[in-house]
């Protein structure tokens, strides 16, 4: 005897939401979870791209500790993250503050956002030419203003090459940070600011003690996005220096790619991927938890 119509409907109602989820679960499972789990496994093997390799325990991870190129890579990644936090987040906030009080702000913010619409590779090509030590725009400009003695091989001398690329990334990454801060500024509650003004708070004091704490939810988002983006920066570096010369401008993401797809030490490359993912995950979780805890206080 078939189940009564009511029961069938109930069963259908119970399963329908899962049906909606199915495509996404499949996509995430196949393209995210499976490769991630596989990468962790590969990190414990000596896979080479043409052979699956065999289990080597922690060998890849102990090799990481002894590898000078990995140490350079970690150091450069730290430069990138700190540089991006100071320049992209700091300048982004400064620009947002300036532009939100300017009449021409609307036009200027469009102008500052423009580089963000370019791909990382295109930005890399543009700045590659700017930094050319012989015919590049920067060297010519410095020569014109009499600072020729300060010019160098921008992309060939470490650590200047990493700083040069951080500058190029800032040119592109400034716009989104600025826009997010502008949105945050526009949505600030008026009352606390007006109350602070009535109490005599002005300028930097008002900004530091009232505006900045009120902006904290947006700052948390901007800092988190910037952190994650700069931990995994790859395209710009690959286009501008390929991590060179002599591996001096590699970051963790570039080293991971190089070991996996240039030298085909796939197991070793996977171990870098695991370390990078662990760092980003742990930092993100701790940072966001601490930020949101503080947000709740206010």
């Amino acid at each position: 005897m078939p189940p009564p119509a009511g029961a069938r409907r109930r069963a259908l109602r119970r399963w329908t939401p899962y049906l909606y989820l199915l495509p996404m679960v499949l996509l995430v499972g196949v393209f995210l979870i499976y490769p991630a789990v596989k990468t962790v496994w590969v990190a414990f093997t000596d896979a080479t791209g043409t052979s699956a390799g065999s289990f080597v325990g922690l060998d890849n991870f102990t090799r990481l500790v002894e590898d000078p190129a990995f140490r350079t890579s970690v150091r450069n990644t730290i430069y990138w993250v700190i540089g991006a936090l100071v320049l992209q987040v700091g300048l982004g906030l400064l620009l947002a503050l300036i532009l939100s009080n300017m009449r021409a702000g609307d036009w200027l913010k469009r102008l500052f956002y423009l580089p963000a619409t370019l791909s990382g590779a295109a930005v890399g090509v543009i700045w590659f030419y700017v930094f050319n030590p012989d015919q590049g725009l920067l060297t010519s400009f410095m020569g014109t203003i009499g600072l020729e003695s300060l010019t160098t091989r921008w992309l060939a001398d470490p650590p200047v090459n990493t700083f040069a690329m951080i500058f190029a990334a800032t040119w592109q990454g400034l716009g989104p940070a600025m826009i997010l801060f502008l949105v945050g500024l526009q949505n600030l509650p008026r009352e606390p600011i007006e109350a602070a003004r009535v109490d005599g708070a002005r300028g930097l004091r008002l900004f530091w003690h009232v505006t900045l704490p009120l902006l904290r939810p947006m700052s948390a988002v901007v800092v988190a996005i910037t952190l994650i983006n700069n931990f995994k920066v790859f395209d710009l570096i690959w286009v501008m220096t390929q991590g060179g010369p002599y591996r001096s401008s590699e970051t963790l993401a570039v080293s991971m790619y190089r070991e996996s797809f240039v030298t085909f030490s796939v197991g070793y490359g996977a171990s870098i991927a695991v370390v990078l993912t662990l760092i980003v995950t742990i930092l993100s979780v701790f940072y966001l938890r601490s930020m949101f805890r503080k947000v709740e206080v206010y």
């Binding site: 050319n132 012989d134 015919q135 060939a156």
Partner: peptide, 17 residues
């Protein structure tokens, strides 16, 4: 030539200049 300025055969490939 300065090896950081000139690119030959790849990349910017500015050698003809």
């Amino acid at each position: 030539s300065d090896p950081a300025s000139v690119s030959i055969g790849t990349g910017a490939n500015n050698f003809p200049q």
